[in-house]
Design a protein around this nucleic acid. Structure first.
Lengths: 188, 188, 188, 188
DNA sequence: GATGAATGAGGCTTCATTCAT
DNA sequence: AATGAATGAAGCCTCATTCAT
């Protein structure tokens, strides 16, 4: 009779992978990940099959966590600016308070190891957030641009803002607010 | 006098590295780079010392080429919008017509192998372009934000735009123009 | 018309090799030797042909220098104890005042790169010193042992003494004198 | 439970290393060591981590084996001369019957790859043998010399004697006995 | 399922020697 | 002779994955 897999181990591996990727890039060794997660090396493969699969699951996990964080406490009937402001604040806060997650996600995002399937899965969970962006841009310069493009722009601006605040935390609030104004001008 | 180093070999190695990094990421093997460049493996180290040094030189080279391309034929006394428009057009054109260069640069940019020294060297050659951005934002939402942040935002938007056009070339012109409008609204 | 070889360069290479071997063992790279000697890498091979030849010449050179140092000012008609005492003092002084030379010689001595020819050449220059040892042992425990063995014993004791003094210079004189007494007891 | 490490493999690697170092010096390639030991190349690193660690373990192993061999059947209450004679006989016998071990140990002993930690570990196991030397020298010329120096002298004399006998086995017994007399005179 | 040893291809770098200039 | 770039074999070590226990 097979023992059931442990959710804790799975999470420990994902967390360790996230930290090591943030620090050492995608070259982080599975053996090292196992050590940090305090699980046997073999378990990485019991739980994820291949390193590539692990990276993909981590990518989706981080994207999901980010999306959920963005949507949490989203004002439901507020006007669009208010909603976009909420989105922006949550997004940048998530990254600023989790530098390793932000860095890991940045590495994963540009990697060719992440499959189209994973990217689509991430897009699905990001759907509600994208809808807000869609409404916000409905009468602006980007009103006729592909929605995927507009979403990517927002993501790029948020990522840049997070990185800048991490590196220079002194002006956090000012940068975040100025960034939002720029975003609002850009798309509304 | 001994044989002088060959500029051609150096360039061949850099070009091969660029292509392979675009295709396989920073894990591209030095032996493979040498093969594509049609030089012996050892020559990679004669010319660059270490793989890391090669990556750094490639990074600076690409950034320099991009900066020069942006500034070429820049209208000198035109108004700021016109200058920013030139910058945007040149930038996105460079990326769209050189997907491997854009992809390699994107990989290198997020790598922790690129030293602060290289990043500073790149910042220096990008100086004149940044000045234009500085003038353009002088009365907009980002007027009081750190210039480095604004520059990073422009870079992020340009990169996103290039990637989108490469992936969906049909709407190239429309996306590029919409992108510019968004940029102009964001910073002016 | 060929330029004559420069004695200075030759010596610079030998000196650099000696220093680097003392520090890094026989694996010292010829390129590094050339750099320390401030000569072009190719000159190492112009002057010595192969690395192995360089090592052999260095070995003979050091052995010769040591032998000459031992014999210098040797009391000609003194009794044997006095001569052996002179030999011992000179020998240990040479090593103690030239740690790199001692260390290089120790490395070279155990190397299988040193040919029989070189060892014989070194034995020839050491001849007069060996004669003194021969006379000293003529009525002792080693009177019937092969002379080469007795010579090797003296060399081993001198080397050990030098190493010990280098490592613990505080007791230099006491150790050197005790060493001599031990030697004298051993062979006389 | 996973497969336990195999003592046999470990020993095979150490033995192969010892043989190849005796023959080719410390430059012996890890791949060659693996081949001779009939294990995959990677196993060398599974068992020893680095080549340097392998050399250090081999050094301690050989020193330990030698020390144990010296002390085996040591007459407990015999007088000191008898004990020293036993030590000398065992020591030289060990070397003469194991030329590769003696040669490997000689190479390792002068290498700067051997750490102070390893040298100290070797000194510990050699402790009882050193005590005998200490007692033997208590009223001789070296009575006030540092014990470490006296021990090193004995080691040097034993090594020299072994090498000489290996190279000229005809006079084995005579040389060994003469060597002992010399040693006894030197220190007692 | 749990564990960590086993595996060998592949990666980066070094190096003695040669040779174009 | 002088110079240092050219060369590619060889060296040490890493690593994802498998599998014996």
């Amino acid at each position: 009779m097979a023992r059931p897999r442990s959710e804790e181990k799975r999470d420990a591996i994902l967390t360790a992978a996230m930290e090591l990727i943030a620090e050492h890039g995608l070259g982080a060794a599975t053996a090292e990940i196992a050590k940090v997660a305090q699980v046997p090396h073999g378990s990485v493969f019991t739980y994820f099959g291949t390193k590539s699969a692990l990276l993909n699951e981590l990518y989706v996990e981080l994207k999901t966590e980010l999306s959920e964080s963005i949507l949490e406490a989203m004002p439901g009937d507020g006007d669009v600016r208010e909603q976009l402001h909420h989105l922006w604040g949550r997004w940048t806060d998530w990254g600023v308070s989790n530098p390793p997650k932000r860095r890991a996600l940045a590495q994963l995002g540009v990697s060719d190891q992440i499959t189209e399937t994973s990217r689509k899965a991430a897009a699905v969970v990001a759907g509600p957030a994208v809808e807000i962006v869609d409404r916000a841009r409905s009468s602006g310069a980007l009103r006729d641009a592909p929605l995927a493009y507009v979403g990517a722009l927002v993501e790029a601006m948020a990522g840049t803002t997070i990185d800048f605040i991490i590196q220079d935390p002194g002006n956090a609030e000012r940068v975040r607010d100025a960034g939002f104004e720029a975003l609002w001008q850009a798309i509304s």
